[in-house]
Amino acid sequence: METWFVETNLGPLLHATALDKPVGQWLTTIRRPDGLGKDPERAQRRAEQLAAIDPDWNPGQLGWTVDWQRHYTGLTALLAAGPGLEEIVPGVTYRGDDIGRWLTRQTRIWARLNPEQQHRLGEAGVKPAARPQKTTARTSTKPGAAKNSDAFQ
């Protein structure tokens, strides 16, 4: 049986291989500035070819990290496999990444995510975390309350 894609413990992207070719290192290289070549026309053509294969091939240009994209991909894979969103809690992993913990964090930092990240998570059914209600300190209106607090002092 031929291995099409392998992620090692040394780094999920950098060491990825396809058909025994180091595609992880290659992707890391081409995502760098001028990684598609110094000729702007050729670089544009190459970027278009890559986008035809995967519009998200360069997450940095989309406004998020490879790490965010890997976790998001893990979330969508888990949801496609059957567990509901409520079952993806901290400790639920996909290919070694704790997707549940990542998901919880995304709901907490929702306002810091860019609109496309919010849209993609929203499409998966994710919503921002509810903000806890602030409570005001209770003060006693009993006639002797101030006297008791003075006695404590």
Rank of each mutant, 00 (worst) to 15 (best):
P22I: 13
P22G: 06
V23N: 00
G24F: 02
G24R: 02
G24W: 00
G24T: 03
Q25H: 01
Q25N: 00
Q25K: 01
Q25D: 01
Q25V: 01
Q25S: 03
W26N: 00
W26R: 02
L27P: 00
L27W: 02
L27V: 03
L27F: 06
T28Y: 00
T28M: 10
T28R: 06
T28L: 10
T29I: 02
T29Y: 00
T29L: 01
T29A: 09
I30G: 03
I30F: 04
I30T: 04
I30Y: 02
I30V: 15
R31A: 11
R31F: 00
R31K: 02
R31N: 07
R31H: 03
R31Q: 06
R32I: 01
R32Y: 04
R32M: 09
R32N: 07
R32V: 02
R32A: 09
R32C: 03
R32F: 02
P33H: 13
P33A: 14
P33N: 13
G35M: 01
G35V: 07
L36R: 14
G37E: 06
G37W: 00
K38H: 13
K38Q: 15
K38S: 09
D39Q: 07
D39R: 14
D39W: 06
D39K: 09
P40A: 13
P40K: 11
E41Q: 12
E41R: 13
E41A: 14
R42G: 15
R42Y: 04
A43N: 05
A43P: 06
A43Y: 08
A43G: 08
A43L: 06
Q44C: 00
R45T: 11
R45K: 10
R45C: 03
R46V: 05
R46N: 08
A47S: 14
A47G: 10
A47N: 13
E48M: 11
E48D: 10
E48I: 10
Q49A: 05
L50I: 04
L50F: 14
L50K: 07
L50M: 14
A51M: 05
A51G: 01
A51H: 08
A51V: 07
A51D: 11
A52V: 00
A52H: 03
I53E: 15
I53N: 12
I53D: 09
D54V: 13
D54C: 15
P55T: 12
D56P: 00
D56G: 05
D56W: 07
W57T: 05
W57N: 04
W57Q: 04
W57F: 07
N58S: 13
N58P: 04
N58A: 15
P59V: 13
P59M: 12
P59E: 15
G60H: 12
G60T: 14
G60M: 13
G60R: 13
G60E: 15
Q61D: 13
Q61T: 15
Q61I: 11
Q61E: 14
Q61G: 12
Q61L: 12
L62N: 04
L62F: 04
L62W: 10
L62H: 06
G63P: 00
G63D: 07
T65V: 12
